[in-house]
Nucleic acid binder design. Structure first.
Length: 279
DNA sequence: CCGGTCACCTGAGTGC
DNA sequence: TGCACTCAGGTGACCG
């Protein structure tokens, strides 16, 4: 499900729910989603306090402290397609399916981890493992961390087609299928365009549109097309502003052509053949 | 390096 | 109702 705007929304909601709170217990109902094993990660987390919650691309990173000034544990979460966090107050009845883990807090309240397709995960890492993880991930900057000129510079040397490149988290982190299709439409760039054929001006425009779309999407708390939800169960509203994503067969709001769907890099790809010409 | 395919899972939607 | 089939917001492994 979630791309940058959805993960950012979840992270902001997590901050108000769990920052500064101490973990009383961890229950795991599906062992394969946690690392190390359920026993060990429960022991690592129990009694620790959540000091920070941050987004790195589409990852959620919790810093946990037990005592002393340095973090003892990093909890890395990737929601993949259908992962969700839900907040449950003490005593509330839980009827949700696919809840694979529950983090309980001192003073009450539980954070539920739910994931229909079971692709997502929660990994507990010590500081050394966290460093190695960062290196091995080699995440690119997210679109807000660089300006248009830097973006154009990174693009200049790259081979391959623009859409798969924008989905590559080592090149740029945070974008997924929805926002890539929307940004390419807004910048009038065909998804198959060779990256190196984009002029500086068009690369600058692409970055501008990416940032604009992501900013608007964050303001509207992301896109809910099927099962994305925030902590309270509330969905986002940006899906109403999608111009091409899953709108094939509809008329392009700019030129009146029919929106088309094709497959690029194995992903469903939506674009307007009138507005988005191949370079 | 690049691209294609599959695998990981469950469910929603469509057409017969 | 039921069955078969396609598709789904992500990524990593494997292969040519």
């Amino acid at each position: 499900m979630p791309e940058l705007p959805e993960v950012e929304t979840i992270v902001r909601e997590l901050r108000s729910a769990v920052l500064g709170r101490r973990i009383a217990y961890l229950r795991v109902y599906l062992n394969k989603i946690v690392r190390p094993g359920p026993r060990l990660i429960a022991r690592m987390m129990t009694g620790a306090e959540i000091k920070t919650v941050n987004r790195r691309g589409k990852f959620i990173v919790f810093e946990l402290f037990r005592d002393g000034p340095d973090p003892d544990l990093y909890l890395i979460v990737h929601l993949k397609m259908t992962g969700q966090f839900l907040w449950r107050d003490r005593g509330e009845k839980d009827r949700a399916k696919h809840v694979h883990a529950v983090i309980g807090f001192e003073g009450g309240g539980e954070l539920l981890y739910r994931d229909m397709r079971q692709f997502g995960y929660l990994h507990g890492l010590n500081p050394e493992e966290f460093k190695r993880w960062q290196k091995s991930q080699n995440l690119g900057p997210d679109p807000f961390q660089i300006d248009a000129r830097e973006f154009a510079g990174r693009l200049r040397s790259r081979k391959g087609r623009i859409k798969p490149l924008l989905l590559n988290q080592c090149f740029l982190s945070g974008l997924g299928n929805i926002y890539v299709d929307e940004a390419l439409f807004a910048a009038k760039i065909h998804p198959l365009t060779p990256a190196e054929s984009l002029s500086e001006a068009r690369a600058v425009e692409l970055h501008r549109q990416i940032v604009r779309i992501l900013s608007e999407a964050i303001e509207l708390r992301g896109s809910t097309t099927s099962n994305y939800r925030g902590l309270s169960g509330r969905g986002g509203e940006f899906q109403h502003r999608h111009r091409v994503y899953r709108r094939y067969g509809e008329t392009c709001p700019v030129c009146g052509c029919n929106i088309e769907r094709t497959v690029v890099g194995g992903r469903g790809t939506h674009f307007c053949p009138g507005c988005q010409m191949v370079e």
